[in-house]
Design a protein around this nucleic acid. Sequence first.
DNA 1: CTAGGTGCAAATAATTTGCAGAGGC
DNA 2: GCCTCTGCAAATTATTTGCACCTAG
Lengths: 337, 337
Amino acid sequence: MATIAAIPDLDRLRPAGTKRSSKRDLIVNAFLKQEGHLSADDLVDLIKREDHRISRATVYRTLQWMEDAGIARKVDFGEGRFRFEHSYRHPRHFHLICKTCNRSYEFLSSDIEALVEEVAAARAFTARQSVVQVYGTCDACSAGRQPDEDTSTSEMLFARDALRIAIATERSGMEFYGRGVKLVKDPRAREIFRKLATEEVHHLKTLENRYQELLKQDARLESRPTFLFFKGAANGLFSTGTEQLRRDGVDDLEAYRIGIRCERGSHRFFKRYGERFEDSEGKRIFLEFAEEEREHLELLIREYRQLVKRHRISADQRRLKSSLSKRAKAKARRQSA
Amino acid sequence: MATIAAIPDLDRLRPAGTKRSSKRDLIVNAFLKQEGHLSADDLVDLIKREDHRISRATVYRTLQWMEDAGIARKVDFGEGRFRFEHSYRHPRHFHLICKTCNRSYEFLSSDIEALVEEVAAARAFTARQSVVQVYGTCDACSAGRQPDEDTSTSEMLFARDALRIAIATERSGMEFYGRGVKLVKDPRAREIFRKLATEEVHHLKTLENRYQELLKQDARLESRPTFLFFKGAANGLFSTGTEQLRRDGVDDLEAYRIGIRCERGSHRFFKRYGERFEDSEGKRIFLEFAEEEREHLELLIREYRQLVKRHRISADQRRLKSSLSKRAKAKARRQSA
DNA sequence: CTAGGTGCAAATAATTTGCAGAGGC
DNA sequence: GCCTCTGCAAATTATTTGCACCTAG
């Protein structure tokens, strides 16, 4: 039931020029055992229970040390003091903060991130970090219920949502290439679309198995609310592409171009998210998928260029022929004159 | 050159049960004269220059008073202390915060807000307030330039962007109804589309004049960066609608439905933004426009229902006729038998 | 005349620092 | 043995409060 595992290679994370110490180990472990967002004081209380000879100053110093080691992240919920959350294998995220129970809920939205990046770009601002906090009242508080303690780590939620998005993308990719096969005229292009369609089918199965495996690790994982919000790939990219294939006058080249757009979009998305996470299941899923999409992308681009070239050649040949026949006609005219 | 005007009706904003005082007036005016985000300490320094007999405590108390009066808003940039920004005629907004020069830049994005609302809804979270802060380096700092002091108040920027969006919406609305006129078959529907198209033309002129008027108030206003980011209405709503009209098989009812969707979307947008602002030019523009869109919306809905009814009636008549003719045939058959 | 408003000094609250002794490598 | 870690107490920083006096309505 998903308790936080002690960090296996804590030693490797130790910032340069720092030594081990039993007190620090105690504090770090107390922090890691805890879920949620602790204030320095919460941590002091926890520590005092195990060893009341540890001073407040040491806790503060250890908190700073954990930040440097990448284990903890300082967050500010506007309470006039800082809280700390895990950052080891825990992606940066946004917060819904309940002013009633002071609990906070995490989420990630690639759509919000994309918009923030756009705004920053429009103002020529180099963004290093974004904070999105929504203050209000949580479901449990407004219904007067007890909030159900979330037992799933956000590492697992991230992996779950990564898989869900990957699966949705595969599905719509499958549909896209399936439709493409029926549409394209060029035999070679048709072969390519068929190949990609079958690849998507295979990969879809793999992903679905992986999803089932993940669910086995935590029974309640599937029913937990969405952590990663994303409209792009699943509802957007490929399904828009499939939609576009349905339009009139889509020739083989256009079909390739649409495919390229879709693959590029999903490659970017998966790469970007994969990279923002330290080694973990979610990261692996995203990066593998990004790689897959990159291969498709490159294949499509290669084939697109090929087809353009072939088109150009046959156009040249037509032009050549017609110019030859023109010359012949001119000759004939001259002769008849 | 847009210096902050003293608030004309400051007296009316005074929270219940508070008295006037010369010290407070002094502090409030010092605050209003200043642009940007002041810390309590900045304000104390400013005050001390005019009267060094005013104590820190009074400044804090006045800051609290200004919050209650709706003149100041407390913001937290994670510096371990609060800053205060104007809130009179100044919409809630988001921040880009430069860690190098400690300046902060304001923006508003209805798209981000919409996404935040979606996330909150998905988690059944009642959002009361959202904070979006982007930390990084501003244009001026990364280029090693002096930042150009922004002389335009965000009241004017908001009005400018409100007008720009309204104008863009009118333009695409105009295009939508223009195309609609050519498309719909029913003569009455055609009349409606024509009427709406001409209305949009008229209103567009009014808005453009208003925009020119606004620019006269501050020469540099037009070149200031975007304050309100919005893709929906201008690039999204009506232009998507126009796009949809272009598809095959759009009949009169479908055309109405698309129009209804567009008008509803822009009505909602303008209403929502109009409401989030205290009485000001930007608010007026948005609310007037929202009203306009609501009228169009209602007209379209009324006409849509009318047309549905007429369709149904004529369908009934056809059915009646065909059943009559069936009976006639049956009779004939019986007679012939 | 009475409920605010104000200055001053002291309180609070979170966090940091100086210093002397303890402990890891 | 040297450099880091730790506890303790004192310092620092932003903000709030108690209290005696002042002032607007």
